[in-house]
Design a binder for these strands. Structure first.
Lengths: 152, 152
DNA sequence: TTTAAAGTGGATATGATTATCCAATTTTGC
DNA sequence: GCAAAATTGGATAATCATATCCACTTTAAA
């Protein structure tokens, strides 16, 4: 029901939010989120154009979340890569319906509205803070080879 | 968020439910629901295999709803043509998560669950009975050229 | 029995999504 | 300035969803 692209974008953003406000390279994100790197880079370009992340070239560059996780919702991420298409007018173009959806499309749109609302009401911070055993996405792993030397 | 195929299948079923228990030809359905006929016929074949409709060849044949509209839900139709894919286990295959979804996937799955529930709770009869000005799908039209002579 | 109506199945085309590759550009540190 | 690290942009491939076409079969009625 959600496209691969949406899934990938959300994985990347959750990972970035977890590291926020530090920057990560596309390579790091790709590895930990199991998203094919070349494709991920396209998705990130999109998120960059939508001002969700900032990208920085060159040595020491990478991708950074532009806003604090508490102020970024899942919906904004989803809408950046693949906007949720609500049904605004009769898909059959029936003049007699117009904006007054028939019962079928009314319910389909209601379903989409509930998804939209759920996504609007969830911030990245909430996802990170969830009191669950498993941290989002990331498997329990040995720490990175060189965890020290935090890039200031 | 829902594919064309789902949209088409639902349109066809609503139309059929409205005529139920009479049979309609693919041609009639295609015309009134504005679905390309060759594609619609594939969709209907699918619904036929899933025992949602019955198809009958030959003169006077056509497509019939197999069950009364009150006993058919939107969900069954959707699942017949394109099953709603719930997230059962961690999409990243993380062993430490397993069936215990991380907060991100938990919420994505919750969203899908709400759609599924809404669709499960709506029967075709409810859609037809909705007290709305406009009947489902069908524009207000002059009656067919020859409305009499109901095919018994 | 012939004919016209109707769905079936298979082949094929078209378009969008997903995915990959690479040369070019930017940036930092030496 | 040079080299290495990083993203960018464009070209291209692979796969799936959408759509079309047609010869064939089934069926009922004349």
């Amino acid at each position: 029901m959600f496209s691969q692209t949406v899934e990938y974008a959300l994985r990347a953003i959750v990972f970035l939010a977890d590291k926020s406000p530090e920057a990560c390279t596309t390579e790091q994100i790709a590895e930990r989120t199991q998203v094919p790197k070349p494709y991920l880079s396209k998705v990130l370009q999109n998120l960059s154009r939508c001002e969700i992340v900032r990208t920085q070239r060159g040595v020491g560059g990478g991708v950074t979340l532009l806003r604090p996780p508490a102020e970024l919702t899942i919906l904004e991420v989803v809408n950046a890569v693949e906007p949720i298409q609500r049904i605004a007018t009769c898909p059959l173009g029936l003049k007699s319906h117009g904006k007054n959806l028939c019962p079928l499309h009314r319910r389909m749109d209601d379903a989409m509205a509930s998804v939209e609302a759920a996504f609007r009401n969830t911030t990245l911070a909430e996802i990170l803070a969830e009191p669950t055993g498993s941290p989002p996405l990331c498997d329990d792993r040995k720490p990175e080879r060189k965890p020290a030397l935090a890039r200031s």
